[in-house]
């Protein structure tokens, strides 16, 4: 029962942090999208179709962020057996998968007018598709083992180990455009380029784009918190029901030896 001490503290913060993140995220993301799509500049070469970037880049970032969260939380789950870590890893899977899918869909819609094709099997696109399949595999594994009593033990560990192994794909996605010839262009954003304003992307694109990334990251955080609260509430309710069933059985005198 020691594990429920920390979830209590988590719930105290998450109660107000969840709606705060979701509302602030939705407001900031909508403002950034209206700004970029409605008032931002068109690209000199690509024209108006470049405006898909304000959706494509945040979803790509969060698709990779989602698996990074799973990997870090899985590591904490395996090493320290922290019960909240297993819950956090499971909670991050759905938003991560949704944003990865959105990244692939918006990229495909952007690719048709910009490249002349909906899809190519180059390193970046393929490794991102592999990430989506990794999410599906993780969710199936986590779903198959979610009824185990304690996270981080027995079968619950399989999902955590899978989460750690799958993290290999994250650097592959990032470096795919640098290691191999690909149709996808190399990164446009870098810390030094943004700070000095001399990166390959003009500042009038960078500012609404980073605002959009901030907004979507807050939405992602809010969704992860909401799903953590959901998983926590489910396991608390199940633990309570199990204890009650055990007490009732003990009262009726039907004592099983294993207990």
């Amino acid at each position: 029962m020691h594990g429920f001490a920390n979830p209590a503290r988590f719930l105290r913060i998450a109660t107000w942090a969840t709606p705060l993140c979701l509302i602030a995220g939705l407001l900031i993301a909508s403002a950034a999208l209206v700004w970029g799509v409605g008032f931002g500049p068109a690209d000199a070469l690509q024209g108006d179709v470049v405006r898909i970037i304000y959706l494509h880049v945040p979803t790509a970032w969060l698709g990779m962020m989602g698996w990074s969260s799973i990997a870090i939380a899985s590591f904490v789950e395996i090493v320290w057996r922290h019960p909240l870590a297993g819950i956090a890893a499971r909670a991050a899977a759905l938003p991560g998968a949704v944003f990865t899918a959105l990244c692939l869909i918006t990229g495909s819609i952007w690719g048709r007018p910009a490249w002349g094709t909906w899809w190519v099997w180059d390193g970046r696109l393929t490794s991102m598709l592999v990430l989506l399949f990794l999410y599906f595999g993780y969710m199936a594994l986590a779903g198959a083992t979610q009824h185990d009593e304690a996270p981080g033990q027995g079968q619950g560990r399989m999902a955590a180990i899978f989460g750690l192994i799958g993290a290999v794909n994250i650097p592959i996605i990032h470096y795919s455009v640098l290691w191999w010839n690909s149709l996808h262009q190399p990164p446009s954003l870098s810390v030094s380029g943004v700070v000095t304003g001399t990166g390959p992307m003009a500042t009038s694109f960078v500012v609404p784009l980073l605002t959009s990334v901030l907004g979507f990251t807050l939405i992602y955080t809010g969704v992860v918190l909401a799903r953590m609260r959901m998983i926590l509430a489910d396991s608390q309710a199940e633990a309570r029901l199990r204890r009650k069933a055990m007490a009732a059985q003990a009262r009726s005198g039907a004592l099983a030896e294993g207990w």
Partner: peptide, 13 residues
């Protein structure tokens, strides 16, 4: 293309 991308993105999110 821009409208299609944002419609799918907004509805899904």
């Amino acid at each position: 293309f821009v409208t299609a991308a944002y419609a799918i993105g907004a509805i899904t999110t």
